[in-house]
């Protein structure tokens, strides 16, 4: 066996149990660990100490970028490159650019939300050692899993296993990382 250890995984039955266990893992001082659930659990963000997700900012910047690019495009197309007189109105004015720019803002912001979500989550990810575990398939069904990474400073096989056991974790397994 020349496989490195990726971490230790433990299963829990209910969202309440996993939330409680997550609090204890956090209090034990671990830093490289994660909770895997079939659906978002209310209160878990707080336990994990996550602050407001940056997806909103990505979306805002992409949206604002799209908005102003279209304003510039309209100015370039209808005022600079080929001045177009329509109904004796000014060549360029803010209101005339609003609707197309606003729609492209929505487009940009929506693409930003998806791209931002995938980027921050480091998806698409072709390989993940966790997905090789048979029991891990149940995470998208009805199981709640805590994985403590082997790269954590506090990680030590028997102690970490004992902690997970004391929290009521079942099916505690070692996750291997292929070389």
């Amino acid at each position: 066996m020349n496989e490195k250890i990726y971490g230790l995984m433990a299963e829990f039955d209910t969202p309440g149990a996993v939330l409680h266990a997550a609090e204890k893992v956090r209090d034990a001082g671990y830093r490289h660990w994660d909770v895997f659930t079939p659906f978002p659990i209310h209160g878990l963000d707080k336990v994990m100490g996550y602050r407001n997700s940056n997806v909103g900012w990505v979306s805002l910047f992409m949206g604002a970028g799209a908005f102003f690019s279209v304003v510039v495009l309209i100015w370039f197309a209808n005022t600079f490159d080929y001045p177009l007189i329509v109904g004796g109105k000014p060549m360029f004015s803010a209101p005339m650019t609003f609707v197309p720019s606003y729609i492209m803002l929505i487009m940009g912001a929506a693409v930003g939300a998806l791209v931002g979500m995938l980027g921050l989550n480091q998806l698409p990810r072709l390989h993940n050692p966790l997905l090789a575990k048979k029991r891990f398939d149940l995470v998208t069904r009805d199981r709640f899993v805590i994985v403590i990474g082997a790269n954590d400073e506090k990680f030590s096989g028997p102690e970490t296993r004992q902690l997970l056991e004391s929290l009521g974790g079942t099916y505690i397994e070692t996750v291997e990382e292929p070389e």
């Binding site: 997806v55 979306s59 939300a113 998806l123 390989h127």
Partner: peptide
């Protein structure tokens, strides 16, 4: 699924992106 695992971090960003997209779709 692009390697989705359902980790707390993934759900955290996903929920934010979802609510942003819902807002944008409502505007549409």
């Amino acid at each position: 699924a692009m390697g989705w695992t359902g980790s707390a971090w993934q759900w955290h960003n996903y929920e934010k992106a979802y609510v942003v997209l819902c807002g944008l779709c409502t505007l549409l």
